[in-house]
Design a protein around this nucleic acid. Structure first.
Lengths: 223, 223
DNA sequence: CTCTGAATGATTGTCAACAATCGGAGCAAT
DNA sequence: ATTGCTCCGATTGTTGACAATCATTCAGAG
C-alpha cells in the first residue's frame, strides 16, 4: 500500500489536535478562557488558523463560544456527564445491534482475541486500571466500526469519545470496575457472534447505564 | 418577552446560516465545490469569516473538507440516508423515552394541542403534504426538548434535523404518509402522558424505521 | 501515439495590520 | 454609599496581501 508516510496537515488542523489534547488532559482547565493571542504565540502560528481550530473544537463540543467574548473550555459537571452517558447509551446500543447484524466472522474472532489480550493485561497488572481504560476504548471502537454506519462511527469516535476521555482524566482517581466490564464485554461479543442484535443492544445499554450509575455514586462519595 | 429585537451576529455566523439554507434548499447542489473566493464576493464578505463558516458547516456534517482541495457539499445517497435514519432511530428513541420520564403535564397537554392543530391542518389542506412536514418537525422538536438532555437536543436539532430537511427537499416529490404519521404521533404522546418510557421509545423507533422503509421503497420505485 | 514532467494558472492556507466591540476603572451626581 | 456615565485598555472580528499547494496544459522524449 502506497499511503504517504507524511500526511501534510494544515496549521489549523495541527492546532486543533494540540488544543484537543490540551483540553482532555486538563492542561487547559474546564471553564478556562481561550485567549486567541496567547495560544497563537504559544503555538507559533497566527490567529487565523487558531480561530479555525477553535471553530472545529466548538463542533466537537469541547469549547463553547460566545460572539465578542471568546471561547471557554466546556465544564463537564454532573448534568453534562449524565447527558453524555445517556447519548452514549443510545448510540452505542445501536452500534452494538448493527455490529451483531453485520460483523464478519473474522472481525468477531478478532474481538475475541482482543478480550483475551485485555484479560491478560488485567491479570498481569494486578487490576491496574489504566490499561483497562485503554482496553475499554479499544473495545468500543471496534464495536462502532462493526456497525458499518459511518455517521455513527463519526459521532462516537470523533465527538463522544473525546468527551469520554476528558471525563476519564477527571475521574482517574476513581477505581473502575475492570473485571465486571470485561465480563460484560464478553457477553456482548457472544451475542454478536450469535447475530443476536436485540440482545447485543440490550447488553451494551446495560453496560453503559451501569457504568454511569457506578461513576455517579463514586463522584457523590468523593465530593 | 424582552428578547433583543436585533441580535448582533458576526459575519461568519450569518454566512454560516446563509450557506446552510443554500445547501438544504439545493441552491448549492450536492457534491458541488464551494469556492471561497466566489462565495465571499457573492456574500460581500472577505474570505476569513467565510472560511470559519465552512468550518462550522463541516461540524454539522453538511460539507466535507479536504486540505488544499476545498470543501464540497455532502452527497446524500442511499447509504448516507440509511445511516442517518438509523442514528435518528437511536437518538429520537432515547429522547422519547426521556420525555416520557420528565415532561411536565403542561408540556404534555401542549403536545396534544399540537396534534389537534396538525390534524386540522391536514384536513383543511386535503392531505397536502407540506404542512405535515413542518408539523412533523414541530413534533419531533418538542419531543427532543422534553428530554431535558441538552446534548441530545443539540445533536438532533443542530445537526440531524438539518440533514433531514435536506433529505425532505430532495424527496419532496414523494408523497408522505401524513395520516399514518399523525396516528403514530398520537400513540407516542399517549405513552408519554402515561409516563411509559419503554413504550414511548419503542413507538418512536418504529415510527422512524417505518418512515425509512417507506422512503426507501419509494426511492427505488422512482429511480 | 503514449507517457513523463515541467511551467502555469487557479485555489487554498497563512499572516499581520486595522476596525469594532466588550468589560472595567475612575469619577461625578444623587 | 450607590448608581450611572465616560473613557480607555484589552480582546475579538475583519480585511487584503502574500505564500504554498494543487490541477491542468502542453512540450518533448521514447
Amino acid at each position: 500500500m502506497a499511503t504517504p508516510l507524511v500526511v501534510e496537515k494544515t496549521l489549523s488542523d495541527k492546532a486543533s489536535l494540540r488544543l484537543t489534547e490540551a483540553i482532555i488532559t486538563g492542561e487547559l482547565q474546564q471553564g478556562q478562557k481561550l485567549s486567541e493571542a496567547d495560544l497563537a504565540t504559544r503555538y507559533g502560528i497566527s490567529r487565523g488558523p487558531l480561530r479555525e481550530a477553535i471553530r472545529e473544537l466548538e463542533g466537537m463540543r469541547l469549547v463553547k463560544r460566545v460572539p465578542h467574548a471568546g471561547a471557554r473550555v466546556i465544564k463537564l459537571d454532573m448534568t453534562a456527564l449524565a447527558d453524555l452517558y445517556r447519548v452514549r447509551e443510545a448510540l452505542e446500543g445501536m452500534a452494538c445491534r448493527m455490529a451483531a447484524e453485520q460483523m464478519s466472522e473474522q472481525e468477531v474472532s478478532a474481538l475475541f482475541g482482543l478480550l483475551d489480550a485485555h484479560e491478560k493485561q488485567i491479570e498481569e497488572s494486578g487490576g491496574e486500571s489504566y490499561f483497562q481504560s485503554e482496553g475499554d476504548f479499544d473495545f468500543h471502537f471496534h464495536i462502532a466500526q462493526g456497525s458499518r454506519n459511518q455517521m455513527l462511527i463519526d459521532l462516537l469516535v470523533g465527538e463522544l469519545y473525546q468527551l469520554l476521555r476528558m471525563c476519564r482524566y477527571q475521574t482517574s482517581h476513581l477505581r473502575n470496575r475492570t473485571h465486571m466490564a470485561l465480563k460484560q464485554h464478553r457477553q456482548m461479543v457472544e451475542a454478536i457472534a450469535d447475530g443476536d442484535g436485540d440482545l447485543a443492544e440490550l447488553l451494551m445499554r446495560r453496560h453503559i447505564s451501569g457504568a454511569w450509575k457506578s461513576i455517579k455514586v463514586m463522584m457523590e462519595e468523593n465530593k
